[in-house]
């Protein structure tokens, strides 16, 4: 139980920190006082479902991540579980976009599905590469396999792909087109009040979880001198978040009509090549 509380507490602190770093406190307060607003003939059930699903999948994905020594839910197939939960964001975003019965959210929802189709395959290959390198789908064993050398060092392509897909799954920064300025905020365009607050919190939670997952997958988990494992995990997570923030500042949004070609022509072959290299090394 203590682990659950610790994980949730840590996650909450990080999500709050990320949200506030965008000077969002006024936004949080607004979320608590603003009325809900309705569009013409919305499917309220589906909107609510989508809005609630987003933070839920973020938390469920976080369950298998080892904080310090071990995870709350130490599944033998942790990587597949993480992948499945993170794909749950597709459903959440699409539901929220569709339910509003309004053009811009719908376009945003579509864009997210298109984005998913572009990033998911390279993302899966990156995860498979890690699993192959560790010889296990369990996060704990992935961390253990990195005692000698962090995976980021000898799987740079997989790490690069992972960073892109992490931004894409949380539709943030350069991969933020589903909620982009060009379509008035996309899926978030018609959300107001508590709905908006919960949805955006879920999005930030997903971003934080994606950053936190990079630590056991590529950065040696809690390994490091002097500090305890949980502290190293936290430090590395914040470092990955800082990397995300840097990318968000420097890179404009990526449109799927162009990125799709890049993903299939460049990213997938490269990640397959990486998979092959890792496979040969492991053999």
């Amino acid at each position: 139980m203590g682990e659950v509380a610790g994980l949730m507490g840590g996650l909450g602190v990080l999500v709050a920190a990320v949200a506030l770093s965008e000077r969002n406190w006024a936004g949080v307060a607004r979320g608590l006082v603003v009325q809900r607003r309705r569009t013409l003939l919305p499917d309220l059930l589906l909107i609510r479902l989508g809005v609630v699903t987003l933070p839920v999948v973020a938390v469920l994905a976080a369950l298998v991540l080892p904080v310090g020594e071990r995870a709350v839910l130490d599944l033998g197939v942790g990587i597949v579980w993480f992948n499945a939960m993170e794909v749950g964001a597709w459903a959440a975003v699409w539901l929220a976009g569709w339910g509003a019965n309004s053009v811009f959210p719908l376009v945003g929802g579509y864009r997210f599905v298109a984005q998913g189709l572009a990033y998911e395959l390279p993302h899966m290959f990156a995860l498979i590469t890690v699993a192959l390198g560790a010889g296990s789908l369990r996060f704990g064993e992935v961390v253990a396999a990195q005692r000698g050398l962090w995976f980021v060092v000898w799987m740079p392509v997989a790490f690069l792909v992972y960073v892109i897909s992490a931004l894409a799954m949380a539709f943030w920064g350069p991969m933020g087109e589903p909620g982009g300025a060009g379509i008035a905020g996309g899926v978030t365009a018609e959300l107001s009040g508590p709905d908006r607050l919960v949805f955006l919190a879920g999005r930030y939670a997903l971003l934080v979880v994606a950053a936190a997952a990079a630590v056991p997958l590529f950065l040696g988990g809690g390994a490091g001198p002097w500090l305890p494992a949980w502290a190293w995990t936290a430090v590395k997570t914040v470092a990955v978040l800082a990397l995300f923030a840097g990318i968000g500042r420097r890179v404009p949004a990526v449109r799927m009509d162009r990125f799709m070609t890049f993903a299939w022509m460049v990213l997938i072959p490269l990640s397959l090549l990486q998979l092959l290299v890792v496979g040969i090394v492991v053999m």
Partner: peptide, 23 residues
């Protein structure tokens, strides 16, 4: 006041299926 002037089905006849866009 806002509540009393809310939209009711049947009042408006906008031919776009998706109304209430930000614009």
């Amino acid at each position: 006041e806002h509540l009393t002037t809310a939209w009711h089905p049947g009042e408006a006849a906008d031919p776009t299926m998706s109304c209430a866009t930000p614009s």
